[in-house]
């Protein structure tokens, strides 16, 4: 039962990431694309952790943590760039 649920959750996250990718190409404005990218990295954290659970190892935790931190910083930097035309003031 656990394995089926793990694989089902992984499948749902993969579908979600595909939808995000479509939004990233379709999205009419720049903020839409940034939002899609932001959602996509959050989903990739879920994907990595689920993969780690399926494999039965917690080695992937550090990668997930790094993606969480760098993803937030990159979203903030992109927003700053669109807001001010500059990242570091």
């Amino acid at each position: 039962m656990l394995m089926i649920c793990l694989i089902a959750a992984t499948a749902m996250v993969i579908i979600a990431m595909t939808l995000n990718l479509i939004t990233m190409f379709v999205g009419p404005d720049q903020p839409d694309r940034i939002l899609a990218l932001d959602t996509m990295y959050i989903n990739s954290i879920a994907l990595i952790l689920l993969f780690g659970l399926i494999m039965g190892t917690s080695l992937y935790f550090e990668a997930a943590l790094l993606i969480a931190m760098l993803g937030f910083v990159s979203t903030a930097a992109l927003c700053k760039y669109l807001l001010r035309g500059d990242i570091i003031e």
Partner: peptide, 16 residues
Amino acid sequence: LLMGGIFVLLGSIGLL
């Protein structure tokens, strides 16, 4: 896990 997967999927459906 199922609840998490459904909500993540829902977020992306809403986004699209």
